[in-house]
Design a protein around this nucleic acid. Structure first.
Lengths: 188, 188
DNA sequence: TTAATTAATTGACATAGGTCAAGTATCAAT
DNA sequence: ATTGATACTTGACCTATGTCAATTAATTAA
């Protein structure tokens, strides 16, 4: 189960076969090991990464501390949004948390393909829309939930995050301290 | 100074004149009074509102309390995102805070125009992108700033919000209590 | 396997910010 | 201008969650 790409697959499946093949021709498979960076602060995010397996996390630095903003699993699309669309240096990092296989696509190649197949702009639009909905929901949770509720939501909705990711990353993702998460766990 | 429509204007200005005229033909001017609702929970958001003057706020209800999520001023585009793109019932309200003049465009009309002018899909894409950047930044602030820092940011970046909007809406927008805002004001 | 790191838990304490209640100021309507 | 309603401020108190430090558990590397 992936985060927000179902609609994209559906859209692609309705394109004509030639266009589909052109899209499929772009990505190259790459394998990364735990700790590898796919993107670092100050670098322009020129590629998107669709995960075949493994885990990636996105984070930025704030006053020397890492703030985790997103986790990516199978079929998710990892990229630093603002840098990707503006093609300006990123303030985010993308780091591999365990051996990960990705399909890498160059944004330049996507733009070229959009020139010859304008209908692909709609694909990018769909992706944006899904991402906005996800962001909107996340903001809603920051606005209305306390530490325990946020943790339990994660536990219910995305247990694979809880099971596979170190507690201090989860804490930072939820905007609470690791100690608080630890106490929530102990309290039931 | 508006929130995120500069790039859209620029894009439109580069279209051919006929297309520009077709776009300009869609919106109808409407005037609303203080307290009027442009959208209520349970209703599908079928229209977008570009403000000519006045103020609109967006909010949802959580456990009986209004949570304000956005303010709109001149040249901003007010709509309930998720409902607008999915055409499903909204969980948000759009309410006019003072006499407001808007240009209203039907989403159906936009979709029709996109059929005959596919290049307009890119316009929608640009809008999404701007909105993602705005949301992303807002989430960043919820993640890293305390009450005082959030208030001061608002004071510096968007003083027109502080000056024109009741304190309890501002408090809710920042995710803190009205009392806290009041104390921050008193402390300097 | 053992040692060395790193991650997670737990306790003691501090504090930002919430809640509730009272009081004051501001605004709107007659 | 007077009343009533609404918005804002202030004080007292409370609670969730942060910080720091010590301890234990789990990984990793040799």
């Amino acid at each position: 189960m992936n985060k927000y790409t179902n609609k994209l697959d559906h859209f692609i499946s309705q394109l004509n076969t030639d266009t589909q093949q052109d899209i499929m021709a772009l990505p190259k498979q790459m394998v990364y090991e735990k700790g590898d960076f796919l993107l670092k602060e100050g670098t322009i995010c020129k590629k998107s990464f669709v995960l075949e397996s493994g885990i990636i996390r996105k984070f930025y630095l704030n006053e020397g501390k890492e703030i985790t903003t997103e986790f990516y699993f199978k079929d998710d699309i990892a990229l630093s949004f603002k840098s990707y669309i503006s093609q300006e240096p990123s303030n985010e990092y993308l780091q591999v948390l365990e051996k990960t296989v990705v399909m890498v696509t160059d944004y330049d190649d996507v733009l070229k393909l959009q020139k010859t197949h304008p209908e692909l702009i709609e694909l990018e639009l769909l992706f944006m829309q899904q991402y906005v909905i996800w962001l909107d929901e996340r903001l809603f949770h920051f606005h209305t939930l306390d530490a325990k509720q946020k943790y339990q939501l994660l536990l219910n909705k995305t247990p694979h995050i809880i099971q596979n990711i170190p507690l201090n990353y989860i804490a930072s993702y939820l905007g609470v301290s690791p100690e608080t998460i630890s106490r929530i766990r102990a309290s039931k």
